[in-house]
Design a protein around this nucleic acid. Structure first.
Lengths: 320, 320
DNA sequence: CTGAAAGCGCTTACAG
DNA sequence: CTGAAAGCGCTTACAG
């Protein structure tokens, strides 16, 4: 009745609608999704959000998804999940009980149950920051390889001789990608990695500082640090300052994510900016297309632009 | 059937349950909420979130609500709303179409349509950071008056002679409360506010800096700033550094919110810490009690603890 | 162009 | 203790 049937007299329609409005009628969502099998419900699923500290990142992404969904008449719902909950209930069950017809998932790990389950599911899925290499799954992220490559090149162009990467976890896909980019940059400058050239700190501030402490003691030649996250870079910057090690004169430093904090540090922190809101928006756009049935040939792998932010922590050239 | 009826034989129950599990049965939420009028759906409604920059604050609060709801078998849903959307659909309509049986609302302004509508609604509401003074509405926040009172006293005890408050907006309730606390502190130290003693900067960094710039030019005696938000305080701290005005030697500075950034500034920023996750948790706890029918006598106004964080920006005593 | 019926997947009395 | 019916508020064919 309300759902735009073409064969209704204008008068009747208008009369009903005005009266309905006057009485404050609103259709009930539960009833509607129950009866109508055509309703599209898009879920943004944040995995293990609660344990993470980088809240603002997810929030920006959420804004992007929400805005797009709202503008395109898609019903949008947010869910939080954890690895534990994923073990209790399968992805399909999760979607089934909530009438989810499409999902954007962020924060998923390759070891999470959903990682395998989404491949077999009939629910279209867009993964953020994680590439399953599956043509049926959408993937949205920046090009982490290229981004870290460029970030590293900033240091190398500035004359850094012995750069070290403070990476996240060897199990995290973004870490693997960023490490690949880092090594690509080294090789394009004809450098060979040493045995200490990549350090894993699991995105943890304390571990990162400890690694750097030891690194500088054992290898005083190190004069550049490429960090896989701003969070680690910030802690390291603090540590270096306390140690009276000058940045960028003694050591150049670049992070990843471009948290606002970086711009308030002394010196200001160079970084790689990800536009999370755009990532959210693009994810929803891709999902929308997938739900409407994309052509097989259309790419489901989307790279969102990033930006290298050069600031004071890399503002020096060692050679002239 | 599944809903714990007492009069079912153990065997039958177990048999059915195991088979159901084996087949991966999950009850559909839409159908359940439709048929069962007893289901409790708690909504966390964030108003005008998208326009705000302080994302991480809401995210922490969300964690608190989510955890509590999850632990207490309440179904939790997140919604975002804006002033504009509130004009299009009333609070009751919003709740009705989503079967919302209880709501926690954050970010609401006194001028928003919902502000009046919640009073007449039959849906129990908990307001975060906003006191409607209505005994039927729950309210959860820190004691802003007392918190700013204490924050101001930090400066006064340190010997600040001419403190100025950089406040938010005269329309924001928290601003009014914090201003009251600020003035309380002055009076308890026998000080009388001057005409320039309170400046409104609408929580905007640029306005805040402009106000401070003019203030210091016209009133060089000012030696202390009490900021209603860390966001403004951080911008001011940056400005002062560029002007070579020493903090805390020339001017002492304290913020509000205790954003992580403050701890990375030079000097580190004193502030008032709000435990947003606890606020979220307490909100959900209060709402839960309200939905189960509280006694009239029980207080619906909850003050959550806060903490004064004294750091380098107030680390000096001018008199001995 | 309009009205009345069937059905979405559950829960809740109600009769056996 | 168990089964069958009614109803939650909608949408969707289907007959008029």
């Amino acid at each position: 009745m309300f759902n735009n049937y073409p064969d209704i007299s204008q008068k009747t329609r208008e009369r009903v609608i005005t009266i309905a409005q006057k009485m404050g009628y609103v259709p009930n969502v539960a009833a509607r999704t129950l009866s109508s099998k055509s309703m599209q419900v898009v879920a943004l699923i944040l995995s293990d959000l609660l344990s993470s500290k980088e809240n603002s990142i997810s929030m920006e992404m959420m804004s992007g998804v929400y805005r797009y969904a709202d503008d395109h008449g898609m019903q949008f719902v947010l869910y939080l999940t954890t690895t534990k909950q994923q073990h209790e209930k399968s992805f399909d069950q999760f979607c089934q009980e909530r009438n989810i017809t499409g999902a954007i998932i962020q924060g998923l790990k390759t070891t999470d149950p959903y990682f395998e389950e989404i491949a077999k599911s009939s629910v279209p899925v867009v993964l953020v920051d994680l590439d399953r290499g599956d043509p049926s799954i959408g993937t949205v992220s920046i090009d982490n390889v290229q981004a870290e490559n460029e970030a590293t090149q900033v240091l190398l162009r500035n004359g850094v001789q012995d750069p070290v990467m403070i990476n996240g976890s060897i199990n995290a896909q973004v870490s693997i990608q960023r490490e690949a980019g880092f090594k690509l940059a080294l090789s394009s400058f004809g450098r060979t990695p040493k045995d200490y050239t990549v350090q894993y700190a699991n995105f943890d501030q304390e571990i990162a500082v400890a690694k750097v402490q030891r690194l500088l003691r054992e290898h005083p030649s190190v004069d550049g640090l490429v960090c896989a996250s701003d969070s680690m870079a910030i802690a390291i910057l603090e540590y270096l300052r306390k140690q009276k090690i000058r940045v960028p004169e003694d050591i150049q430093l670049i992070g990843f994510d471009d948290l606002i904090i970086g711009q308030y540090m002394t010196p200001t922190l160079s970084s790689v900016e990800q536009h999370m809101e755009l990532i959210g928006q693009q994810s929803c756009h891709l999902l929308n297309k997938m739900m409407r049935g994309m052509k097989k040939s259309e790419p489901k792998r989307i790279f969102v632009p990033y930006e290298i932010m050069e600031r004071d922590s890399t503002a020096i050239s060692k050679e002239n």
